Amino acid sequence: MKHLKKIGFFSVLLLIAAAVFFIWFFFRTWPLRFHAEFDSFFGKGNWKQVSSETKESFMYSVYHRSSISSLSKNRPGLFHEWDIAFTNRSGETEIWTISDHTMRINQDKYWLLSPNRYSARQALTLELMDLSSYMAGDQVLDEILGTILSDREADCIDAYISYRHGNPPPGMYSRLIREPWFTVDRITAAEYLQTDLYDFYLRILAYNYKVEKLTPGEQAHLFGSLEEIEEALQEAFGEYADYDIYLGEGYAAEFSGNKAAQGQF
């Protein structure tokens, strides 16, 4: 009887330990914890985690306390990355790396009740926003700039969605993830420019070191295309057109249409 009681006692301890481990693993593993959010953003059955990695951070540290005082010291904090494979709107497989690094830096900086502190869900939305901002920019590069510039000229340029007025407040991410257009199939530059959630704009940047590798004729064509690029963007986005273009020294332009976000953020 005593033997059975011991077995039962240790079985309960084992179950408790397993439950604690599962809860710990669940909350630190975003593709598991936020499975519904991943389904909503990427499409149910359209994504899978292909790898994960834990890394040391150079941006924040944790204090490690040891029973041996000489061993107590600050150590690099840890963060996690997950590689997510999905099929994009063109039918091609892409892999995005999603990380909780920004959340850990933020939560190390701000205390629990600070209005500037990200929740895990808000930090996930920030990651998805940052990655999708380049996806939206690539679409502009392909569909608009690609009709004006040669491939070599276009290869000198990055196009992406950025924002003014500093980092958005955490609450903005809570609203963004509920937007019906915030999915990998529906996100476009136009959606970002038309939303009133924050002051988003299109950034088009040519890198000088890449431009220098173009022939003189290609450089002249790139610089001379500024006006045509502006006209194409204003035609594509209408009164919501909002952009900042830099093609080189003396070849830059900014514009905000009548309906571009003008509120206080």
Rank of each mutant, 00 (worst) to 15 (best):
F42G: 01
F42W: 02
G43E: 00
K44E: 15
K44I: 11
K44F: 13
K44D: 11
G45R: 13
G45V: 13
N46L: 07
N46G: 13
N46M: 03
W47N: 02
W47E: 02
W47F: 12
W47C: 01
W47P: 02
W47I: 02
K48M: 07
K48Y: 11
K48V: 13
K48D: 15
Q49K: 11
V50T: 14
S51P: 09
S51C: 11
S51E: 06
S51V: 05
S51G: 06
S52C: 13
S52V: 10
S52P: 00
E53W: 04
E53V: 13
E53M: 07
E53K: 13
E53R: 09
T54S: 15
T54V: 14
T54I: 14
K55F: 10
K55G: 04
K55M: 10
E56S: 08
E56N: 04
E56W: 08
S57N: 07
F58E: 08
M59R: 15
M59E: 12
Y60H: 12
S61I: 07
S61Y: 10
V62E: 06
V62I: 12
V62N: 08
V62M: 10
V62L: 08
V62F: 08
Y63V: 05
Y63D: 08
Y63P: 10
H64S: 07
H64R: 10
H64I: 01
R65H: 07
R65D: 05
R65A: 07
S66G: 02
S66N: 14
S67G: 15
S67M: 11
I68D: 02
I68M: 11
S69E: 09
S70V: 13
S70G: 07
L71C: 12
L71R: 10
L71I: 08
S72V: 01
S72E: 03
S72N: 02
K73D: 12
N74Q: 08
N74H: 14
N74F: 15
R75I: 15
P76W: 02
P76L: 01
P76G: 01
P76V: 00
G77W: 00
G77M: 01
G77A: 11
L78R: 00
F79I: 00
F79M: 06
F79S: 03
F79Y: 15
H80D: 06
H80P: 06
H80W: 05
